[in-house]
Amino acid sequence: MSDFGTVLFKSGQSSEWLPNSSGLYPNRGMYFGDGLFETMVYDGQDIRFFEYHLERIREGCQVLGLDEGQLDPRQLQEVVIKRSKQTQKRIRWTVYRSGMGRYTPATDQLEQVLQIAPFVPAPQLKENAVFCSAVHLAYSSFSKLKTISALPYVLAGKEKLEQKADEIILCDSAGNIAEAGASNIFWITGKQVFTPALEAGGIAGVSRRLILEHLAKLGVNVQIGLFPKETLLQADQVFTSNVTGISMVKRLEDVEFDCERPDFLTNLL
């Protein structure tokens, strides 16, 4: 097993997941970022919220013009269960276009890579966050998807390291809050919950969807819109979320927030 955990490869309409050494290099994922991925959590029995992940990757296949009929979700789940041996795992499912060519694709066939690695939960608290200055996100027909064209997040992560921060907040070109470096972002001011609209260029995270659905069931109104940085700096509480969990944010720039976890987040994710 490598540092990446167990890595399996499935080509086109093949019926088997094989060791990744059988994969084809180079490929369109490597050359053009022509693909998608989902990061999921296996809890020892099932892939959590798998239907939501499957729905998003199918939507992505439709946007990219990939043959979603080649996806076999039941087989993927069986492989994960067999390989994970009832222990928690972090699952990355990558789908990219087959063949090569130039920018213009020559096929709608796809290749798949499945990575099964140890699960590390999100930290309960992120001590220090900063705004990203190197990257601004932009809204598009695919910006809400998790594509493997992830250079903005790579550069944001680099800046986070340079700033010695625990989290970095990305904005769009107009200065509206979009998301965190690898998470969606929410904040509370008074009794009102806020989160950015996807039109700011952020990803439609599965955890974001779960939180919004959960709050709707509780009758909690969430303001979704385009909000400038100052709105976040005026918040009482800030938290980020992805499928590995929810983290409270203690400080953003020179502003400190209340870090006591809201009751509505108890046992969620």
Rank of each mutant, 00 (worst) to 15 (best):
Q13G: 12
S14I: 11
G23A: 14
M30P: 05
M30D: 05
Y31Q: 14
D34W: 00
G35Y: 04
Y42N: 11
D43V: 02
D43A: 00
D43M: 00
I47K: 07
F50M: 12
I57F: 01
C61K: 08
V63I: 12
L64I: 01
P73T: 11
Q75A: 07
V79T: 13
V80A: 09
K82I: 02
R83G: 02
T87K: 14
T87L: 08
T87I: 05
R92D: 06
T94D: 02
M100E: 10
G101Y: 07
T104Y: 04
P105T: 00
Q109L: 15
L114V: 04
L114P: 08
P118S: 06
A122F: 15
A122R: 14
K126H: 12
V130D: 03
F131S: 02
S143P: 02
K144Y: 10
K144G: 09
L145Q: 10
K146P: 10
P152Y: 03
L155T: 06
G157F: 15
K158F: 10
Q163P: 11
D166H: 14
G175Q: 07
A178P: 02
G181T: 13
N184G: 03
I185C: 07
W187G: 13
K191S: 09
V193K: 09
F194E: 10
P196N: 03
E199I: 07
A200L: 05
I203L: 06
A204S: 08
V206E: 06
I211A: 11
H214V: 04
H214C: 04
H214Y: 00
L215R: 07
V220R: 09
V220S: 09
L232K: 02
V238L: 00
V238M: 05
V238H: 02
S241A: 15
N242M: 01
N242G: 04
I246D: 01
V249P: 02
K250S: 10
D254Q: 11
D258P: 13
N267K: 06
L269P: 12
